[in-house]
Amino acid sequence: MLTKRIIACLDVDDGRVVKGVQFVNLRDAGDPAELAKRHSESGADEIVLLDISAAHERRSTLLDTVRRTAKQLFIPFTVGGGIRTLQEAASVFSAGADKISINSSALADPTLITQIAERFGSQAVVVAIDAKRHNDSWQAFTHGGRVSANRNAVEWALEAESRGAGEILLTSMDRDGTASGFDCDLTRAIADRLHIPVIASGGAGGAPHFVEVFREGHADAALAASIFHYGLSSLGDLKQHLLAQNIPVRWPC
């Protein structure tokens, strides 16, 4: 049976992880390469590295980080943040990423999805959507949730799929950072309409939230960054909790 994926996210600024799991016995808790390897050994099914650096000149730092992280990582590895062109995507792939994640640049130029998919395959293109509730629907936002794209999030997800996206990384701006649980209504609204996998993100605060988003949100995968600070001691504990609730996960890894 296809299992539900648990994805560990590393938010990276100028080559350093700025929030995330604090492992004991790490030589350097801010090093993305070391953290990614540790997450993989703990049972993460995938690693997402999001570059949140504001400055464009830091791109070479990012490529170096991707290269160092990919070198010792043998599970799927997605890189996002500031990828604006096919050429920039190509350089991230050749540094060792398996998939790239695009958000604002895809909204600004939806043909970018098709360009990257045609060259590297749809499986390599993740379209990230930051969604915020507005009355009875959800709107897509860009620039870290600060700017409205004036697009209905469900319609944008459908368009991204039709343009060749391989997966949707769906973040609830309402829940992000609250640790109050994933937005199951939003996740289900998109997961039930699409034929490609949907990764739920934003709001994870404990193992029961993952059960909810798989069972009620119909998510194919769930992503978290800082959750392991609060309440959960390890990815292994989370997976054992999910197995006890009859959610299929890869365990033992």
Partner: peptide
């Protein structure tokens, strides 16, 4: 089933 088949299977 959803297609593509993406993820870890046994």
């Amino acid at each position: 089933v959803k297609s593509p088949h993406v993820g870890w299977n046994q």
